[in-house]
Design a protein around this nucleic acid. Structure first.
Lengths: 317, 317
DNA sequence: TCAGGTCGCGAACAATTACTCATCAACCCG
DNA sequence: CGGGTTGATGAGTAATTGTTCGCGACCTGA
């Protein structure tokens, strides 16, 4: 995206203004039209643009009692230090729009901490959507580090890459990992890992105080496959070995134990590990991810979970 | 329909859920009613309750959102009918390039009105820069009138004169004021004012529907001095009398009250006054003008303000 | 027990918002 | 230069939302 010079006579600034007047000031679109000196139709279009461009963020400042019970139960059952359950929007509906704002609030809570933290982020649709929901803030004291490489097979930065987006929002020092998500070979991985700058980023990521990750399923619709990081053959091979899910490219089985596959010997990023004083929070929801989530919880691969109501209920069933 | 959890939801829980479904999932209140197993009216009441109980927080994530907040605050604090804050370009940078396009848009909005308006303009760098940003348009229905005389001491038309420029751009009937900005004496002023054609222009300017003016500071770098309308001695004398700023040549103190100086008895143009149905909009920004602006706002010399972000923040501090 | 008050409900209606459609101008692109 | 495409616009209309009103349930104190 090209950012325009700031003096510009407003491209979607009008949309922002309209959205502000509509949602914050509570004006009717008719009044907004008068305010902006335009037609009612245009005002309506501006308002709806403000939504579709994700300029408007909505948060729920109330913990629904049903969700609270699920959170407590999840924490108990899976030994979680943090459990957050967003109200579901309905069966069969993508839970991301519900999870993302909830997760964003949680990340912001971490960022508001006064003492400096190292915060690591994975990649994926969930995280990307979450970051889009975050507010801008000034967090010079923290460090934001990427868990995975952020260069895809064709050399382009992945669309779902999160680190730059988040760093942009919170204006904190950030450490991308300048290498592929998955190396061609173990040797190539070692080559990357032997580079000085990479080593310090790896160290930072490994020792991060808080880590936020998405979860990938290893069924036929695996994100790793969809995004072109592995081939259909590789996927089938790992399914045969019992692959149940994947975190930051690291594949694990239905007990939540990491597999000894050729892929895992080529993943360039760091493996998520929980430890005392260190949080690893999974952000995921939806039926396709149920198996992967359940396996990861069973193996205690993370000690935090942000999901939605229906997923939570299914996990507990 | 989803089966409800076994615990009874508190009244607020339902409101929260309804609000979530409405704003996040984007369901209609009808769908929410079905989802919750209730009537449409109840769904509507739950949604509005979620707002009135402040369970739902709406925010705007856009770089101008801060400006909108400042506008609302300025309007509230200083009783303005119009407040516009342009995003600043940075500390220490001339804010004019940011203010001018914003102000130009505002002026154009007035000009687009179908019913005939009388629009008065002051002079100065800010207005001049603003006019340069305006697009051409056909506005035969309006009248454009100058607030001040537009002949400087040496007989030349002032470079910062605005009226001809604007009239040229919008092709509207225009009324310059054929006399000096500041007369040699009160008598000379009265002489000019007694002329028939001058009187009608004065009347037009005094009763203008909308007036746009710049603000001049009265510190040592006063525009009045720089442009040779007053001498350094005169400036010092007025500073001693508490001069804080000046609008169209009329000097006022830090409470926004016009001074009874010899200069004010010689200013040839009309004094800006707000009135019901009449707007007086100040276009100004930058550190040097802060004192003058604050004073003018305090004295309610104008009921509209177009400025930049940094200035707005300083005015509110 | 009963008058009086409050509250939530649904019906009906008014206000507001969203969508569809036809038009038009700008913009490519050969 | 002409044809096709895109994108913005206002008119008109359908859908949705907000409000008012009367009703009945329920509480409460005399």
């Amino acid at each position: 995206m090209i950012d325009r010079p700031e003096t510009e006579p407003t491209p979607l600034d009008d949309a922002a203004r309209a959205g502000w007047l509509y949602y914050v000031a509570g004006l009717t679109q008719d009044q907004i039209a008068r305010e902006l000196g335009t037609s009612r139709q245009r005002a309506q279009r501006l308002v709806s643009r403000a939504i579709s461009e994700r300029l408007i963020h909505v948060r729920l400042e109330h913990r629904v009692s049903g969700c609270l019970r699920l959170e407590a139960e999840l924490a108990r059952r899976f030994g979680l230090k943090l459990a957050r359950v967003a109200p579901s929007l309905g069966v069969g509906v993508d839970p991301l729009p519900s999870i993302a704002p909830t997760a964003a609030a949680e990340i912001e809570r971490v960022l508001r901490a006064a003492e400096p933290q190292v915060i690591a982020f994975g990649t994926g649709r969930s995280l990307r959507a979450t970051v889009e929901e975050m507010t801008s803030m000034e967090c010079e004291q923290h460090k934001i580090v990427s868990l995975n490489g952020n260069i895809s097979a064709d050399g382009s930065a992945s669309y779902y890459d999160v680190i730059f987006r988040i760093a942009d929002r919170v204006r904190a020092p950030h450490y991308p990992m300048p290498m592929p998500v998955i190396a061609q070979s173990t040797e190539e991985r070692e080559l990357f890992h032997s580079l000085k700058p990479v080593q310090s980023v790896l160290r930072l990521a490994r020792d991060a105080d808080v880590t936020f990750v998405g979860i990938g399923q290893m069924s036929d619709d695996a994100p790793l496959l969809k995004d072109g990081f592995i081939t259909a053959d590789e996927l089938r091979a790992m399914q045969a070995l019992g692959a149940a899910g994947e975190v930051a490219g690291w594949v694990y089985d239905s007990d939540g134990h990491y597999l000894e596959t050729s892929l895992n010997q080529r993943v360039a990023g760091v493996r998520v590990e929980v430890g005392e004083g260190r949080m690893a929070v999974a952000i995921a929801g939806g039926t396709p991810k149920l198996v992967a989530l359940a396996a990861g919880l069973k193996g205690r691969l993370f000690n935090g979970l942000i999901t939605d109501e229906l997923t939570a209920r299914a996990l507990l069933a």
